[in-house]
């Protein structure tokens, strides 16, 4: 089945990003198509390129980038991202993780239209 995921809170601050990731991993393992993740509110921090967690901690931004490379489109809401200083490219440099995108709320709408299930994680 086609599953879309929405994450509404920041990584490390809240378990949402972790639960969502484990859910997505399990869903893909079971053969479901998780076609997109939409990051909203503080959730947009999930794809900053400048996250450097300690070596013994999980690297959440890398997780999303890896899923992005495997065909799960990772979107961050542009309005939420701009407010929080998360920007795609400035001065010719990319500031978000590879294989992630910044997009409008219309994308979340499209996800709601296309998905068999839209599952939200947050605080």
């Amino acid at each position: 089945m086609k599953i879309g995921v929405q994450i509404k809170d920041g990584p490390y601050n809240h378990q949402a990003a972790d639960t969502a990731y484990q859910f997505i991993k399990a869903a893909r393992k079971k053969g479901h198509e998780v076609f997109a993740v939409f990051l909203y509110h503080d959730g947009v921090y999930n794809i900053t390129k400048y996250s450097e967690p300690p070596n013994d901690d999980r690297h959440i931004a890398n997780r999303w980038s890896e899923l992005g490379a495997e065909g799960v489109t990772i979107y961050a809401c542009i309005a939420a991202a701009k407010r929080r200083g998360i920007t795609n490219s400035k001065d010719g440099e990319q500031h978000i993780m590879p294989n992630t995108e910044i997009t409008g709320l219309g994308q979340l709408t499209d996800m709601a239209i296309v998905a068999d299930r839209l599952v939200t994680f947050g605080d």
Partner: peptide, 19 residues
């Protein structure tokens, strides 16, 4: 349930998350 059991529940039911 484990995460896969969570997925099974989502497959069976529409989801209403109470944040």
């Amino acid at each position: 349930v484990d995460y896969e059991g969570f997925v099974d529940l989502v497959e069976k039911h529409n989801v209403n998350t109470w944040l």
